[in-house]
Amino acid sequence: MIRMEGVTKTFGDHAVLRGVDLNVEKGTSMVIIGGSGTGKSVALKCILGLIRPDRGKILVDGTETTTGDRDAFLARFGMLFQGAALFDSLPVWQNVAFRLLRGSLKRPQAEAREIAIEKLRRVGLKPDVADKLPAELSGGMQKRVGLARAIAAEPEIIFFDEPTTGLDPIMAGVINDLIREIVVEMGATAMTITHDMSSVRAIADNVAMLHDGVIKWTGPVAEMDQSGDPYLDQFIHGRAEGPIQAVR
């Protein structure tokens, strides 16, 4: 469903992506792992067209993302940003229901609010946060509001950029289950970036490891432990020694 072919992106003289090839099938959950600063977030933003790749093709359902109606294209996506990216002038519920309050998916305000509160509940937040401003919430709560916003309009394709960082282990478990549920029950296609190996095992159908601007290894999560790939092994076991330099 999502296909990246030879995608490159350079910022100044810093080549971040150097030819990323990746395929994500419809209704599956892909987890992207890789060191900090290797370009995982940049890769997701390239798919959404927030960053324009220098070279390469990105196809969704076989059509290039740069062609066609951009609004209709984006309406199929939900995205949780790494820093949550909540609109700080709007109360929490209006953040969550943002898409439902305007544009093609617009609904009556009361209904939108109800949906927002239901989504907040699913990410473990009580209804009383609905009328707070994002700045009044803790970092982990903001992250979960961002997650609720990403899933609010029930998009077909959902990107999660580090959904569990900053959460306690119990809440991380809740979020992992939620992501799995969205993929299995709602049939959504998900791409998740995470550094948390227990999350990887809980969420992933397939895993891709980004290193040095390319996908070093990709395959089903079950094969991850027997890959024989020294980079992947070092990463999943969190060893300081190995082919990946500790200072990058």
Binding site: K45, L48, L50, G83, A85, L86, R99, R102, G103
Partner: peptide, 13 residues
């Protein structure tokens, strides 16, 4: 800087 502009765009706004 806090990616809110990117978030707006992804929310079709």
């Amino acid at each position: 800087v806090t990616e809110q502009i990117d978030a707006l765009t992804t929310l079709s706004t």
